[in-house]
Amino acid sequence: MNASHTPRIDVMRSQLGRARGLGSAKTGVDHWWLERMSAVALVPLSGWFVLQVLRLAGAEQQDVVEWGGKPANASMLLALMILTFYHMQLGLQVIIDDYVHGKAHLPASLLLKGAALLIGLFAVIAVLKLALAPSTKAGA
């Protein structure tokens, strides 16, 4: 080390504050990683969803009930709904982190989490209602 070179601080900033400002934020990897992993899971689920949309385009309510009553469809649909709204919450949280500063950050984040949770639950209940409805098919 060069002994003549002494770092000089002429700002009103304590050494502790300076030390605290160093290094990573220690959190955030889990958020980043879960966003990627939910994205990876949504790739095949989206492919499945496109096929189902083509199957159900122009369908009547009865067709949808029959479709949703099949356990395989209901399982895929539940996975799709849960992962979609989870991924949505993770993504919108990043937007809030980027643009909402100060005191508004916490209420905005909580509002987003609450809304995402409620929409997700709503979707899950709707799928379960379709899945568990008594079959209208003759002979079932």
Partner: peptide, 15 residues
């Protein structure tokens, strides 16, 4: 997607 959930809900509610 939030609107899509409305479609799903309507299908489960009835004709």
């Amino acid at each position: 997607s939030a609107l899509g959930v409305c479609w799903l809900n309507a299908a489960s509610k009835g004709p």
